[in-house]
Amino acid sequence: TPNSGEVQLTEEAVRRYLSRKPMTTKDLLKKFQTKRTGLSSDATVNALAQLLKRLDPERKLIADKMHFFLKE
């Protein structure tokens, strides 16, 4: 499709975002919108779930919302 591949949902990309600042699941989903990656909603959810489990980021409650982040 013409719009696919603009953004890639990779471990490296997730790692980069979480190293910059704490993010909620919704923040991460915004970075990997389906219209930018060309992935389906299900594929996006599954990939992010697997990557987050593998990266095992720190968790922090900010304004009552769970945020993930990675230390340098």
Partner: peptide, 20 residues
């Protein structure tokens, strides 16, 4: 749409249930 984003966030959080 924002409702699709909400659904995806809910699905992702469900996948991460044990983890979170």
């Amino acid at each position: 749409s924002s409702s699709e984003a909400d659904e995806m966030a809910a699905a992702l959080e469900a996948e991460l249930n044990d983890f979170m």
